[in-house]
Design a protein around this nucleic acid. Sequence first.
DNA 1: TAACTATTTAACCGTTTAGTTAAATATAAT
DNA 2: ATTATATTTAACTAAACGGTTAAATAGTTA
Lengths: 89, 89
Amino acid sequence: MSSVFKALSDPTRRKILALLRDRDMTAGEIAEQFDISKPAISKHLDILKEAELVSAEKKGLYRIYSINLTVLQETLSGFMNLFEKENEE
Amino acid sequence: MSSVFKALSDPTRRKILALLRDRDMTAGEIAEQFDISKPAISKHLDILKEAELVSAEKKGLYRIYSINLTVLQETLSGFMNLFEKENEE
DNA sequence: TAACTATTTAACCGTTTAGTTAAATATAAT
DNA sequence: ATTATATTTAACTAAACGGTTAAATAGTTA
């Protein structure tokens, strides 16, 4: 859970997730959307992968990244539930 | 929004929020729950305040902290909504 | 006024973070 | 085999982070 929040704490990584919400993308396609170097993006992807927010599939020369919506939603809604039940013992 | 995710990325701060979910607490009461120094807690509270996740009221010698549930819930559910509507244009 | 208490601010320190460029790896194409 | 391409890994750097102790601030009490 800490790794997920850590992953979400960076705006570049949140934008990567938003991109992947629409479609799977290669590392290069993702990098094109930013003004930072490809190695920097690669590291961001690694952090997202570590948090299991994305997964990668190797396809020839490319790596295709896709979002793992389940982990994202379950972590956030799990956390939010802590703050929604008003009268709990 | 970035400040909220940054604030949530630290486990001590998430635990502070969980404590404040149950009741308002003074800075000292909060600090008692942790093994770190009071100045460290004070800084964490500052970050939470900066993100508007908590607010503080001065009462005599004490400062009473309370959670701002609205900001927490609206930020997280706002972000989650980005990932829930499947077919959006 | 002086002493005590709760909390924050200041100054510092080691670690982590987010970026860089250069080199390595792995696959594809000629 | 050589060259080109996509991506990652390595080595480095500056800034941010999370902690510490000591000092400052502000309110209370004797």
